[in-house]
Write a protein that binds this DNA or RNA. Sequence first.
DNA 1: CACTCATTTGGCCATATTGCCAAACAACCA
DNA 2: TGGTTGTTTGGCAATATGGCCAAATGAGTG
Lengths: 106, 106
Amino acid sequence: MDESTRRKYDARARVIKAMGHGTRLFLVDELSRGERCVCELQALVGADMSTISKHLAVLREAGIVQDEKRGNQVFYSLRCPCVLNFFACVESVLRNSASQSGALVG
Amino acid sequence: MDESTRRKYDARARVIKAMGHGTRLFLVDELSRGERCVCELQALVGADMSTISKHLAVLREAGIVQDEKRGNQVFYSLRCPCVLNFFACVESVLRNSASQSGALVG
DNA sequence: CACTCATTTGGCCATATTGCCAAACAACCA
DNA sequence: TGGTTGTTTGGCAATATGGCCAAATGAGTG
């Protein structure tokens, strides 16, 4: 794999990796229902505010969400809602895995 | 976020996270063109065989690929080709980000 | 069995990630 | 200006990840 190919895949992987964390995936899912301010998200997740802020920064730097400051608060929203398509596929992967390990299907 | 919700999102995130690495993403892309043995993949990537093997194990444990031993070799193939849908979305995220930072897209 | 080829596993080190706390910032209010 | 609220940043410790080497395993061959 040459250097430029590697860079190309690394760039793509960075986007996917941003979704590869339970809390961040939850944030994306919640934002699919509309914009939310950091404090709302923090209340839902229940982690430290700074933790939420850092997760949101990861999503923002990946280009998945965008932020908008209004008054005191910062509102986050999905910038590329297509990431929601990931969920359906992930569910099917998990279903497949479950039926594989369970083996008692049918 | 209660314990069971957290577990649900963590499980989903584990699948996505498995794709969140340049080399693994490349492997998935290559497997989209058909099954490959480890040695073929190793030649394409150019990393140590053990490194490839471990990346493949990550993908397998996530339920994304499956392996089949035939004779001397182990052939890997996609178990859930829907993961290929990720690529299109990732491209659009990257395009969006590029046009945002570049701003000179006219 | 001894030998070879293909792959996996164990170990180690360097680096990255995560989450909390504390401190810094920014916008608004009195 | 000083205070309050909402958010980000810096720093640190614990943990996870990635990649190489070496050793172990497994299948096939003579």
